[in-house]
């Protein structure tokens, strides 16, 4: 069984978000890059667990990104996974990114493709769906549990106001979130092993980007908090009712 795990590079969750070049570029000064948490904590760990249960499982990591993504790819390899493919291009267009991954998916005929629920920088929640459409397989979004018996997956996914349990045969694309697995920390053995695991660099397919980011903006600053004394809760209720019109 072959699993393809999508890993993307995102700024650390505590990064200061700022822009340069007249609001057209993300300010990378002082930013620490991490594996997108949904990819690292949930989809990658679940793939590793499946491999721990069944040694015939192989895991390939795929990233669409420049050479600066290699440290996070190595970290993902240190957690687990057999090999990685980096597609050497940078883009913000979801179709472009997903079509690159779909090309890898087609060429390698993977049984299972995992993505994270969303990237914490672009927040599209869309790469998995596009890949699934391009390779014409079912897509389970926002999975909170993933079990596999033979070639049939039982997946729990988030729906509005609850969850849904479904069965579906592989091949399949799944986007993973909390619940699917528990975060792991890479150990020394993993880190050493990752150094020699194959990391292949592919040049991108000729695919048209359908969107591009023109500029960024920061939200307007809050006016500042209005504090109410703890013995005057009635005043807070009055403000919420009359001023904020929120209740």
């Amino acid at each position: 069984m072959k699993i393809l795990v999508c890993v993307s590079k995102t700024p650390d969750t505590t990064s200061k978000i700022a822009f340069t070049d007249g609001g057209t570029k993300f300010d990378e000064a002082g930013v620490q890059w991490i594996i997108n948490p949904y990819d690292e904590w949930y989809s990658l760990v679940r793939a590793i667990e499946l491999k721990e249960k069944d040694a015939s499982v192989s895991i390939t990591l795929v990233n669409v990104g420049g050479a600066d993504a290699e440290p996070i790819i190595r970290k993902a390899l240190a957690l687990g996974g057999d090999e990685a493919i980096r597609i050497n291009t940078d883009s913000s267009d979801p179709y472009y990114i997903a079509a690159q991954i779909a090309a890898v998916a087609k060429a390698g005929s993977y049984d299972l493709i995992f993505t994270g629920k969303e990237t914490i920088d672009y927040n599209g929640s869309s790469i998995g769906g596009i890949i699934a459409e391009l390779i014409d397989v079912p897509y389970i979004s926002l999975a909170t549990k993933f079990e596999l018996i033979g070639t049939t997956a039982t997946v729990t996914r988030e729906i509005e106001g609850g969850e849904e349990v479904a069965e579906v045969a592989l091949p399949l694309v799944v986007s993973c979130q909390k619940g699917v697995a528990e975060q792991r920390i890479p150990n020394m053995r993993g880190i050493m092993a990752a150094r020699t695991k194959p990391l292949k660099v592919n040049e991108p397919e000729a695919i048209e980007a359908l969107t591009n980011i023109v500029s960024f903006e920061l939200p307007p600053a809050k006016a500042g908090v209005k504090l109410v004394a703890p013995d005057n809760v009635a005043e807070l209720v009055r403000l919420l009712h009359e001023e904020a019109k929120a209740i």
């Binding site: 700024p11 927040n123 980011i213 500029s215 960024f216 903006e217 920061l218 939200p219």
Partner: peptide, 16 residues
């Protein structure tokens, strides 16, 4: 659209 988990916005041009 919202980006960086609501910490910023991006203006995205659709060219298709």
């Amino acid at each position: 659209k919202t980006v960086f988990s609501g910490k910023a916005f991006a203006n995205v041009s659709i060219n298709a």
